[in-house]
Computed example of a mutant assay.
Amino acid sequence: MKIERVNAKKLASFASLFILTIGAIIILVPLVWTFSTSLKTPAEVFSDNFFPKVWNWKNYSYAVTSIPFFRYLMNTLIILIPVLIGTVFSSALCAYGFARFNFRGKRILFLVLLATMMLPGQVTMIPMFIMFKEIGWVDSFLPLIIPSFFGGGAFNIFLIRQFMRGIPRELDEAAYMDGASRWKIFTKVMLPLSTPPMVAVSIFTFMGVWNDFQGPLIYLNSTDNYTLALGLSMFKGMYNIEWNMLMAATILIMLPALIVFFVAQKYFIEGISISSATKG
């Protein structure tokens, strides 16, 4: 019986490893194709060769200089940094209220908050655009930044709230007995202990803002205000597309997101797993 169990475990482990390997290959093939295309000449892009005969690393320097790459990078960072701060802080503050305060209608309000995740972005897109247009914020970064300071998103609130519910209340009571206010308990006790889900929210937010194409496309009209995601469209001409330059710029834009994920993946996985395992 023991031998059969060991063999069954080995078979299950091998099957899991095989499925994960196939999945990894399927995911990596487009990435390898993008990298390969970024090193080809325009004549080789549509050839049968998967890899270029000569690796043209100059494509990367041409991709950076053919568009105002660093200007678009600065615009992206101008949007990204405030959105990160606003999203993480406001979602943590809302999560703290749902996790630690008891008030009338709390459950109903939380259910309404979760229900907003079922609304697609297209439903609120036009009303929000009309509102920002009426107050004169179109063609500025404000419509992409200011909303992040008002809640931080239902999923982010849910994720951090689930984690905070798992933190013992005795810590709050001990801090309160020492004379700490609710605000001090939040900033000195709850925030430091909630680092894993906050890092997970930060990664989600970073990925969303860094790769966001729809938001800047709607609100930014001037090419000087373009972000990196919008800047990629500059490689598309009226009659042709410079695929090798486009792929080179895509790889350059992709690198920071990959670095951030691999550096913070420990906290990311911890935050997701612990928050998902917490009941309530």
Rank of each mutant, 00 (worst) to 15 (best):
T21G: 12
I22P: 08
A24P: 11
L28W: 11
V29I: 15
L31A: 13
T34M: 15
F35R: 05
S36I: 09
T37H: 05
S38V: 09
K40T: 00
K40Y: 01
K40F: 01
T41I: 08
V45P: 05
F46Y: 10
D48Y: 06
P52V: 01
P52C: 02
W57F: 11
Y60E: 00
S61G: 14
A63Y: 00
A63P: 02
S66T: 12
I67L: 10
P68M: 05
F70M: 07
F70P: 09
Y72S: 08
L73V: 10
L73K: 05
M74A: 13
L77G: 01
L77C: 11
I78T: 10
I81D: 11
I81H: 10
I81F: 14
P82I: 14
L84Y: 03
L84V: 07
I85A: 11
T87N: 04
V88T: 12
S90Q: 05
A92W: 00
A95R: 02
A95Y: 02
F98P: 05
F98N: 08
F101T: 04
F101Y: 15
F103A: 03
F103E: 01
R104T: 12
G105L: 07
K106Y: 10
R107S: 07
V112F: 15
L113S: 09
L113W: 02
M117H: 11
Q122V: 13
V123G: 02
V123A: 10
V123E: 03
I126S: 07
P127K: 08
I130P: 03
I130L: 15
F132G: 08
K133M: 09
K133L: 03
G136L: 10
W137M: 15
W137T: 07
D139R: 04
S140W: 02
F141A: 12
P143D: 11
P143M: 03
I146K: 09
I146P: 03
P147K: 11
F149T: 08
G152Q: 06
I157N: 07
L159N: 02
R161A: 15
Q162Y: 12
